[in-house]
């Protein structure tokens, strides 16, 4: 069987591209607006998100047969919240500057509906290896959008990439100016909107096909 036909690959690729949580399902927009002013914060947020979503999918999937149905949502939230707090504590101990930049947004990963959606919708009914692939796929899908938006916002808003200035001084001398608008939340909204449109155009899916 070809790699691209395996169930695991499908579990990974579907959320990462064809059913991207941000561009296609319009989930997790709030944090995507907030942490994409700089690539650095977007990158750390992506790693934190991948860790939390993969970890919680794995744990929930391992326990899926013993979790009582009537309290499953609260169990899922408990696992997610604990992983988020662990991430936050870790960042504050080892990457203090970045954790200051991300401020409340690491903690708010708990409220990111992508994670609860995947644990409830996928991990509760699938074996661990598929749940992990699904978690990684969603993390990658979320992260790729985050990083693309952050790339555009940092490049046009601050003239830098990962904090390194890339627009030559001669451009500024010739009258080029950084776009202040890129640093504001509405800019992220517009970029995400354009990206969602682009992806729907490429994959050929639209609202009417659903």
């Amino acid at each position: 069987m070809k790699l691209t036909r395996t169930k695991s690959f499908k579990a990974f690729a579907e959320p990462a591209w064809t059913n991207n949580p941000i561009n296609m399902q319009m989930l997790g927009i709030c944090s995507a607006l907030a942490v994409t002013i700089q690539l650095k914060t977007a990158f750390v947020m992506t790693l934190a998100m991948i860790f939390v979503i993969t970890g919680s999918s794995l744990i929930i999937s391992l326990m899926r047969k013993i979790i009582p149905g009537n309290i499953r949502i609260i169990v899922e939230l408990g696992v997610i919240a604990s992983l988020v707090i662990l991430t936050d504590e870790f960042l504050r101990a080892y990457y203090y500057e970045i954790s200051r930049l991300l401020s409340v947004f690491v903690g708010l990963i708990i409220t990111n509906c992508i994670i609860l959606g995947r644990t409830e919708g996928f991990a509760m009914s699938n074996p661990p290896h598929l749940a992990v692939m699904d978690g990684l796929g969603n993390g990658a899908g979320y992260g790729s959008v985050l990083l693309s938006v952050a790339f555009l916002r940092e490049l046009f808003g601050s003239g830098s990439i990962f904090g390194y200035f890339v627009i030559p001084q001669s451009f500024y001398d010739a009258g080029y100016e950084n776009m202040g608008f890129m640093l504001l939340a509405p800019a992220a909204f517009i970029i995400i909107g354009l990206m969602a449109w682009l992806q729907k155009y490429i994959t050929g899916t639209g609202e009417e096909d659903r």
């Binding site: 009582p68 309290i71 408990g78």
Partner: peptide
């Protein structure tokens, strides 16, 4: 189940918070 989960998570988080 809920009680067991609370104990496990509380222990885990306390350990992490104290250690860090």
């Amino acid at each position: 189940f809920a009680v067991c989960m609370c104990i496990v998570l509380a222990l885990l988080l306390t350990t992490a918070a104290t250690a860090l």
